[in-house]
Amino acid sequence: MQPRVTNSVMTEEFEAFVRVDGERLRRVLVARYGVDVGCDAAAAALAWAWEHWDRLSGMANPAGYLYRVGQTHARRALDRAHLVTFPVERLAPSDDASGPDANLAAALKALPERQRVAVLMVHAYGWTPSEVAQITGTPAVTIRSHLRRGLRQLHSSLSKGTQR
């Protein structure tokens, strides 16, 4: 590893990147791996980005590359028995008769990772399938397919939960 002396221009570029793409990266990794592992993976990816900024800044899709870096970190974390976690849904006061509803979090957790990314990024965060496709390096048509199947499965899971 070559030591490196930082400079202010590099720092500003990196910080600008983190402000925009860092947050996008965190959300998509959380969508895929849950809050705990996803946040850790995003932090690790950004740390990697800082260390390799010279290389990364010249890439066409640095956020997409960092998504892969984050995936590597997340898989290691999952191998070490870290859990995929999603917060319990907060209900509106009018719906709050039965207290917090854990069904959505559980149903999301049960979805396949790629379907979960598509569902959460499109319907929770309002991304287009093309935007999801860009950061995940997956064709948009595949994202749409994951989205359809993910929604269907989520609906099915929640319906079963309601009927119980």
């Binding site: 809050v35 999603f86 849904e89 907060r90 929770a124």
Partner: peptide, 8 residues
């Protein structure tokens, strides 16, 4: 799901 964004 849209409302879940704030929770997330």
């Amino acid at each position: 799901l849209a409302a879940y964004r704030s929770t997330l």
